[in-house]
Design a protein around this nucleic acid. Sequence first.
DNA 1: CTTAATGCAAACCGTTTGCATTTCA
DNA 2: TGAAATGCAAACGGTTTGCATTAAG
Lengths: 150, 150
Amino acid sequence: MSSEAITDGWVEQAEAALAAAGRKRGGARRALLELLAAQECALTAVEIEDALRARSARPVSRASVYRILDELEALALVQRVETGQAMVRYERVCEHEQHHHHLVCDECGLVMPFSDPGLERAIDSLSTRVPLTVSEHEIVLHGACRDCAA
Amino acid sequence: MSSEAITDGWVEQAEAALAAAGRKRGGARRALLELLAAQECALTAVEIEDALRARSARPVSRASVYRILDELEALALVQRVETGQAMVRYERVCEHEQHHHHLVCDECGLVMPFSDPGLERAIDSLSTRVPLTVSEHEIVLHGACRDCAA
DNA sequence: CTTAATGCAAACCGTTTGCATTTCA
DNA sequence: TGAAATGCAAACGGTTTGCATTAAG
């Protein structure tokens, strides 16, 4: 399916990284990995929990969702996205995939990904001139989406 | 003092905007405005509350701090800054002042302002090509500050 | 006087933790 | 069998709300 093509073995990459870190396998985590692999953009913990319950996929408790996301974040397999919407969002990080950022509609809460080479260049150059060893950056543009602006 | 020179009458501008919106004046809000006017970078609600209590300035209750910040944000006099540190930060918005963004040290929590014309240009141009009527943007670079990276 | 401003304490809600149980290697 | 994984429910902590009181216009 298309989602597998897009993620290009991200689930396997994640499992390998976890194994290398001495972790055992588990069904809850596997289900969560597969869900994230199929997403185009960031989800909240609750959205993840609901999706796993709804999809007849293995239900995973809220606590496990957070714990698993934390582990994945520590291994840089997942990234937090702060959209200013009270809850944190999470999405997979895939090396072979183009880095993207987010557009947030402050009216309806819609979150969309976007990417822009010029912006990446500006950030990369900036990163070398700043009193911080930059590990990550996150750009969020706020505004009104097409439907809401209409 | 330098803080007044920097803020260039922001307190008065804010009071005027509030009056125009039909609001009455109040001591708590005034104290909060003066505190924000004197800051160089974003503060959390708790930091604001503590600063007002400590400085022998008028103490302001936590609830009022949040309510006042919400009002000021609605009038675009104050801006939220999401640093991914669990609590939101707030800082004044001053038209006559150069727009800045933030560096966050993920080790010690230090938050520093920075600005970069190239980045602003990239964002402005980007804003016209994206399916969102952009009202605001926020850039946060995460990493390790000089002390923590050492 | 009429409405906004404020304080206090309780409610909220996303997230984290403690503990008992199950599963993997 | 020993360590990691998971679920459940309680605890946490930042933020918001309800309600009574005070103060501005």
